[in-house]
Computed example of a mutant assay.
Amino acid sequence: MKHSNDKPISVKPIQGNNTLKLIICALGIFVCYFYYGLLQEKITRSKYGSDDEKFVYPMSLVLCQCIVNAILAQILLRTIMKQGKDTTRISYYSSSALTYFSAMVFSNMALQHVNYPTQVVGKSCKPVPVMILGVLFGRKRYPVAKYLFVMTIVIGVILFMYKDKPSSSTVADKPLLGWGEILLLLSLTMDGLTGAIQERMKSEHKTQSCHMMFNLNLWSIIFSLSAVLVTGEWLRFLNFIHKYPYVTYNIGLFSILSAIGQVFIYLTVADFGPLPCSIITTVRKFFTVIASVIIYGNIIIGRQWIGAAFVFIGLGLDSFYGKSAAKKK
């Protein structure tokens, strides 16, 4: 006989299914973005042909990437991830797409001046502009621990990017910030603005993942297509891939991995929260730096390894303990 106060027994297999799903998402993010990073370096830093030409078409590369992202998002919206009606304002999508597009272009342009490990470590400073813009424009307050973790990241980046003065007085001193570092700063600023706008989208309209992925990339296609047409980059890009057709395969695979990786990130954040996603992406960045050093022979001195350690320790601590909800002033 069943008593009225009997409670249903929780079913354990659900936890097992969630664990399996998290493992699949983690592997998806790691594999996709690990090879994405290696392909990005191969495309942008390789020398092509007997004349040692370089790939200098960052807006065209972003255009290819956004087209594949938008196509995949639309397929998911029409099949297995139907998310209902989207009420997000067009102005939010267009403005966030502009900063999102700009961040990717600046990041790709930076690779023409710095190696991939420098780009990865520099872009790991993303929490800094997000926090600053949150304080200045979102009127948020963060716990003291958050500031300490972000300061650890900043110290690590300074150690990594600091340029030693040449031993010979006949050699001109290099500036602390070269074009590569300036472009990374611009990319980080755009990342911070994108994050601030997306926070408003989520708080005001509860924007769903696939709707955001599709519309963000759709508007980015409009901006990048306009940019390559106005600057004439599209013609130079087509001539380049006609001259070196094998680069088309790398660009196609690069774009596909970007799109699939985005889906795994959205799934991880939606089902498990930002903490596991932050941990996975931090580990991925660390191993990508190591792979870049081994595969492409990028040289990193001892001080830079210490700086990289500071960065990834700061990111790890921020992922575990710095995600407390920011309070409004």
Rank of each mutant, 00 (worst) to 15 (best):
S4R: 08
N17L: 11
N18C: 06
L20S: 10
K21M: 09
I24W: 05
F34E: 11
G37K: 03
Y48W: 12
F55R: 06
V56M: 13
V56W: 01
V56C: 12
L61R: 07
I71W: 03
R78G: 05
M81P: 00
I90Q: 13
Y93H: 13
S96A: 13
L98R: 08
T99F: 15
A110Q: 09
N115A: 08
K123M: 15
R141L: 09
A145T: 15
L148F: 11
T152S: 12
V154G: 03
I155Q: 05
G156C: 04
I158C: 03
K165V: 13
V171Y: 08
D173Q: 07
D173C: 01
L177M: 13
W179L: 04
E181D: 10
L188D: 08
T189S: 14
M190I: 08
E199M: 01
H205G: 03
S209Q: 14
L218H: 02
F223V: 08
L225G: 15
S226V: 09
L229M: 12
F237N: 01
F237D: 03
L238S: 13
N239L: 07
Y246P: 01
S258K: 02
A259N: 08
I260Y: 04
A270E: 13
L275H: 04
C277L: 05
I279V: 11
I280Y: 06
F287A: 03
I290S: 02
S292A: 14
S292Q: 00
I294N: 01
I294L: 13
I295S: 06
Y296R: 04
G302I: 00
W305N: 02
F310S: 00
S324F: 02
